[in-house]
Design a protein around this nucleic acid. Structure first.
Lengths: 170, 170
DNA sequence: AGTTTAAGTCAGCCTTGTTGACATTCCAAG
DNA sequence: CTTGGAATGTCAACAAGGCTGACTTAAACT
């Protein structure tokens, strides 16, 4: 079952980076880094009485204003009941606006209000501060590798969506 | 509030990798990649009636057998009540053994049993398959960058623990 | 006219996190 | 030897945020 890589079968270049031990370290690093990655926004969210789910909604509404609920659901990968609970509070609190579609009136298009944008900026600024510091520390080449590995780890369907967004925003 | 990087102030090398847009893409990539990263073990855990919390406990007990509960708590960053609930089921199911300390009998040292090891392997194998595929796709240099960025994003205290483990296992 | 789709809602369940209170056991310092 | 504090474990209660299932409404498609 366990595929033991590295060791004997190096070709032109060393495959030592594929040993189980190296992969295990990568797994742990991913766990610890994700914690650091969410720590700062989590603190802000907590003060405002929101959670990580609200942050995700704000992020993706901000990224693609006017997106429909269904679209958001497929990006976030949660049920509509779960998303709706979050969306309802954001709309009630005046951070998100839900507009009836002009083409198809069944659809609701989501937009951040002014104060929604303000909170989203506060959250993403906090997150970017950490990420910018990390990026600066390691330099552009390491960052390029980072992004390559992350993309390769995504589910293909999500990678498609991820790169589609890249297209539309240049 | 927003710190606009990139654009004008490039020195010797381009700082375009530090623009808000690049950082935002990094944040999203992290979100999607983490989902892919946990997807495979999550499926296995679900079949067995366990959750991600059980996986984390199994992982870190396996990594450092004989670790105390307190130590595990500080690594996982949860409350003892939360960990205990998970630990109790794992012990009841015979996946984890809790031995009273010989030096200090208040401490409990945690070990995986044979079937605990078996499940841990099943889980980490699934996770490694995806990571190995990603690593192979992008090559050793990208992997090195990946690891550098992850380490730089961790909280310093956790980075210390992370690297301490590297020491002890070579 | 009938079916499908988008969205929303209600109810109930689960996991996994949290606090707070409390008991036990044991080490170590006075 | 006693007592304070540390390590562990447990109970109860709660919240966030997932989930399923059932059902409504409105609009669009066929």
């Amino acid at each position: 079952m366990t595929e033991h890589s590295g060791g004997g079968r190096a070709g032109g270049e060393s495959l030592l980076f594929l040993t189980d031990e190296q992969l295990r370290k990568g797994i742990e690093a991913m766990f610890f880094a994700y914690r650091g990655f969410t720590a700062d926004p989590d603190r802000i969210l907590d003060e405002q009485g929101y959670g990580r789910a609200h942050h995700r909604a704000l992020h993706f509404i901000n990224r693609a204003p006017g997106n429909t609920v269904n679209n958001l659901l497929s990006i976030l990968g949660v049920t509509k009941q779960s998303l709706n609970r979050v969306l309802r509070t954001l709309i009630a609190d005046g951070l998100v606006e839900s507009r009836v579609g002009t083409q198809d009136k069944r659809e609701r298009h989501l937009y951040l209000t002014e104060i929604g944008v303000a909170l989203e900026h506060q959250l993403s600024d906090a997150q970017r501060v950490r990420m910018r510091a990390a990026y600066r520390t390691v330099g552009p080449q390491a960052v390029s590798g980072f992004r390559q590995v992350l993309e390769a780890m995504m589910d293909p369907e999500l990678r498609r969506k991820f790169n589609a967004a890249r297209e539309s925003r240049k």
